[in-house]
Amino acid sequence: MRKNEEPMFKTYDTLEQATHAQPRVTALLACQDNLMPASWHMPISKSPFRYAVAVREENYTHALLEKHRSFTLNFLPFDHYETINILGKIHGDSEDKLAKSGLKVEGKDSHENVLLSASDFIYECKVCDTYKNGDHTIFIADVTKIYVNDKQSEKPMLFSGRGKYGTVEETFTLSKRSIK
């Protein structure tokens, strides 16, 4: 870098200070009838299929997950970003988030967690382990069933933080080739 040039990157010490976009797929976590928007989640094992979600201890959903040890992850298409945003501002211990969402319930899984009709797909999860780290608990779950909607959207919902939502514009399918 030359003397009078500004640095290419600004440096931050905490996530709260940084203002960068960090797109990640968003889902509605349902524990019983309570809904919580979740974007801090990921698959962690293929066989057995295991999934991890990170939930702040102060959230009402955290207490429900500790009590019921199961949940569903409902992956809604991009069309529902306003609903997800509203649900992220409501506290489940004082308001009925499912009723406020206006979303139709298709049924319940074997642990009485809701299955939302609008979902592209749903993971039915049974908690097998927890790990507290920082200000979140990571709930690790066995995915016991996968529900796939025949009318799946091609626009998954992405959350970039700070109220920003998006979806994919283009997708490409590349064939797997062996490297010689």
Rank of each mutant, 00 (worst) to 15 (best):
M1W: 10
N4K: 08
N4S: 10
E5F: 12
E5G: 11
E5T: 09
E6P: 09
P7V: 02
P7D: 10
M8D: 11
F9S: 05
T11Q: 13
L15G: 05
L15I: 07
L15P: 02
E16C: 10
A18T: 13
H20I: 15
A21Y: 14
A27P: 14
L28H: 05
L29I: 05
C31W: 00
Q32V: 13
N34M: 12
N34Y: 06
L35Q: 00
M36E: 06
A38P: 08
A38W: 04
A38C: 14
W40F: 14
H41M: 12
M42C: 15
P43S: 11
P43R: 07
S45A: 10
K46W: 10
K46P: 04
S47P: 03
S47L: 03
P48G: 09
F49L: 15
F49N: 00
R50N: 13
R50Y: 13
Y51K: 05
Y51T: 03
A52G: 14
V53A: 11
A54P: 12
E57K: 15
E57H: 15
N59K: 13
T61F: 11
L64F: 12
L64P: 07
L65H: 05
E66G: 15
R69A: 15
R69L: 09
F71M: 11
L73K: 00
P77L: 04
D79Y: 06
H80T: 03
E82R: 12
T83E: 03
I84F: 08
I86Q: 11
I86G: 03
G88P: 07
H91L: 12
H91A: 05
D93P: 07
D93W: 10
D93A: 08
S94C: 12
S94K: 14
L98G: 03
S101C: 07
K104C: 13
K104L: 15
V105F: 13
E106P: 00
G107M: 06
G107W: 08
D109A: 03
S110W: 01
S110D: 11
N113K: 01
N113P: 00
L116H: 00
L116P: 01
S117G: 13
A118Q: 08
A118M: 05
S119W: 02
S119I: 10
D120W: 04
D120T: 12
F121G: 04
Y123D: 00
E124M: 06
E124A: 11
E124H: 14
C125S: 06
C125Y: 03
K126I: 07
V127P: 01
V127T: 04
T130W: 03
T130G: 09
K132Q: 11
N133Y: 06
H136W: 05
I140W: 06
V143W: 02
V143Y: 02
T144C: 09
T144I: 02
I146N: 01
N149W: 12
D150I: 14
S153W: 01
E154N: 08
K155N: 06
M157R: 03
G161C: 07
K164S: 15
G166C: 07
T167Y: 04
V168L: 13
T171R: 15
T173H: 12
T173E: 05
L174P: 00
S175A: 15
R177Y: 10
S178R: 14
K180V: 11
K180E: 04
